[in-house]
Design a protein around this nucleic acid. Structure first.
Lengths: 198, 198
DNA sequence: CCCTGATGATACCCAACGGTATCGTTCGGA
DNA sequence: TCCGAACGATACCGTTGGGTATCATCAGGG
């Protein structure tokens, strides 16, 4: 019975569930949900299909869990914006726009996970759809709150405008129709915020 | 090369190629490209898979041809805007925005074909990608021209802003994050155009 | 030290997909 | 009227997909 000793100095592998989610995140983002098979995720996670189905009931459940993580990342950007600019809602909104603007180069390669998932999962009863819906509703609520705090005359309308612009910048970055989308996005958001101060 | 017309009268079936494209349009739009099989298209078109492969080399070629038609529809909206408001670029842009705004209820059900196709076809060498790229480039060029003709101080920037807003309205209509996206969209575009006149 | 639950590995099932081969039928132009 | 091209129907092929069954192995806690 030779005990297989783990090599010293080698970083311990994460538990399977984490490795699976990491692999799923990379593959779903770079190649799309429907193009990536469970087998491919298992290989990338250095495990097997069986291990995946021990942690997730179906592939759809794995997709939903992945989107839950992505949504949490985006909400964390809201948290950071609020934490780094307390009581300065205008700066919070700009920080948020900067977060999106800085992500555009990556987005241009493969697109926004939420927009893509909506396209890839037309079934409205898919568990991932609910995750997206809730995330977007929360995002809008927080943005409206920031706009109100910033003293914009019509917070709902301003939040809608900022939302459109942020989403549109991601779409345009992806399809390549607009040059320098990041710079343009920042100028636009600044313009929206400045208009209230005139 | 005269088109072979089968029978006079409204009841006559269209030729197979047209029926195939009609069926593909409905199915791709409502259920997504990858979810719809060639067999399903054939059934909807009241023909067979073989007939499809007699008119289109591959499914990918059929997808590209479908997007070519959709792109032509959008470009036709530009044409109409120009024809109905000659020498009034501001009205042309508003007509365009109205065209998008009026399409939002349909978009909210399943999303914009170009955005969805980009998500569903991550392979950058897919023939449909070139169709989308050219369409979006042409759209931007025409919009910049309209903005310049409207006397907006920075036509590229204004065109970028309008593009972002139009695309973002479609995304937001699809994910349901913004109420009344059509009305909001029109107010935003009017605001962009009015800002130059102040 | 041993037992139990989690893990790794392999083989398998069944359905759906894109695409092809074949053959009989239909229809319009010459 | 006749011929060839287009059309319809069906069966088929190879691959890939999600999901399952089985069994050996490993690790940690009682």
């Amino acid at each position: 019975m030779t005990a297989t000793v783990r090599r010293p100095g080698r970083v311990a592998k994460l538990p399977p569930r984490e490795r699976i989610l990491d692999a799923a995140e990379e593959l779903f983002q770079s190649e799309g949900i429907r193009r990536v098979g469970v087998q491919a995720i298992a290989e990338r996670a250095e495990t097997t299909k069986m291990a995946i189905y021990r942690h997730f009931a179906t592939k759809d459940a794995l997709v939903a869990e992945w989107l839950r993580i992505v949504a949490a990342d985006y909400q964390a950007a809201f948290d950071r914006a609020e934490a780094e600019h307390p009581d300065r809602p205008r700066e919070q909104i700009l920080a948020l726009a900067r977060f999106i603007a800085e992500g555009l180069p990556a987005i241009s390669y493969r697109g926004c996970p939420f927009i893509n998932s909506l396209a890839e999962l037309p079934d409205r009863s898919h568990p991932a759809r609910q995750v997206i819906e809730e995330h977007k509703a929360l995002q809008t609520r927080r943005l409206v709150g920031m706009c109100a705090a910033a003293g914009l005359p019509d917070p709902e309308q301003a939040a809608a405008e900022i939302t459109f612009v942020l989403e549109g910048a991601q779409v345009s970055a992806h399809n390549g129709s607009i040059a320098q989308p990041g710079e343009r996005l920042m100028r636009i958001v600044e313009g929206i915020l400045d208009r209230a101060n005139r």
